[in-house]
Amino acid sequence: MSPTPPSATGSAERLGLKPGMIVMESGYDDDVDEQLRDDIAEHTGEDLLADDTDEVVDVVLLWFRDGDGDLADTLVDSISPLADDGYIWLLTPKRGRDDFVEPSDIAEAASIAGLSQTSITTVGQDWSAARLVGRRSSGAKR
């Protein structure tokens, strides 16, 4: 008996995406996971926005490879279009793949950018994803 194939939007669901969410994509290149991109668009019902958008977005989907520049700077740039409760999915090549990014480098860059990593998951055959959220300031509660 063969296993049940994953739903077309399984990866998008695993990333916590919901219908109607606005997702901006950054770092697109010819090595990205096109199936994941299609899954996200299908699941949210929205096209992925380019990183030059002026819209406020719920999620930034950031493709990043070793050699793409300074990760902390890239993360800081990715924060500005986010809604107050928005978050970043940092997608990096899996260990053993070309341009792999060390987890310690991700943690350091996230800290510099004022972000916290809340979860890690695998998406597709070649990519890992780290969910990064803004730190809540202690003075924000009233």
Results as ranks from 00 to 15, higher is better:
T44M: 02
V56H: 05
L91Q: 08
Y87R: 08
E46N: 15
D68R: 02
L82I: 04
V76K: 13
E55Y: 02
D73T: 11
T53V: 03
I88H: 00
D52A: 12
T74K: 10
D58A: 04
L75R: 03
T44H: 02
T92Y: 06
V57G: 01
D51C: 12
S80A: 12
L75Q: 06
W89I: 03
G69C: 09
L71M: 07
D52L: 10
G96D: 12
R95I: 14
D68F: 02
L71R: 04
G67E: 10
V57T: 03
G67Q: 06
V56Y: 05
D54T: 15
V57C: 03
A83N: 06
D84E: 15
S80T: 12
I88Y: 01
D77Q: 13
V76I: 14
P93R: 11
V76W: 09
W63E: 11
V59Q: 04
D73I: 11
V76F: 08
D68Q: 03
G67M: 04
R65W: 05
T74I: 07
T92A: 05
V57L: 05
T53Y: 00
R65G: 08
V57R: 02
E55K: 14
E55H: 10
S80I: 07
W63N: 11
P93W: 12
D52G: 15
V60H: 00
T92P: 14
D51V: 01
S80W: 09
L91D: 03
L82A: 08
K94V: 06
G96T: 12
S78P: 01
V56T: 15
T44E: 01
G86V: 00
L90T: 00
W63K: 07
D84C: 05
V56R: 07
G96A: 14
D52Y: 13
G69P: 09
D85Q: 13
Y87H: 14
D84W: 08
T44G: 05
I88F: 01
D70H: 08
R95M: 12
P81F: 02
I79M: 10
D66A: 15
D58H: 11
I79S: 09
I88R: 00
E46W: 06
W89H: 15
D85F: 11
L71Y: 05
W63R: 15
A83T: 02
S80D: 15
D47H: 13
G67V: 07
D73V: 12
T92G: 09
R95Y: 11
W89E: 03
T74G: 05
P93G: 09
I79P: 03
S80N: 10
L75M: 06
I88A: 00
D77H: 09
F64N: 01
G67S: 08
P93S: 08
D51L: 05
G96L: 14
D66K: 13
L91I: 04
T53M: 06
V60E: 01
Y87E: 13
G96W: 12
W63T: 04
A50Q: 14
D70P: 03
W89T: 04
L61V: 11
D70R: 10
D54F: 10
L61Y: 01
T53W: 02
L61Q: 07
P81G: 09
E46F: 08
G69K: 07
G69N: 11
D58S: 06
L75S: 01
S78A: 15
V57D: 03
V60M: 00
K94W: 06
K94N: 09
R65D: 09
S80R: 08
D85S: 14
I79V: 15
T92K: 02
L62G: 01
P93F: 10
D70T: 10
Y87P: 00
S78Y: 03
V57Y: 04
D54Y: 10
E46A: 08
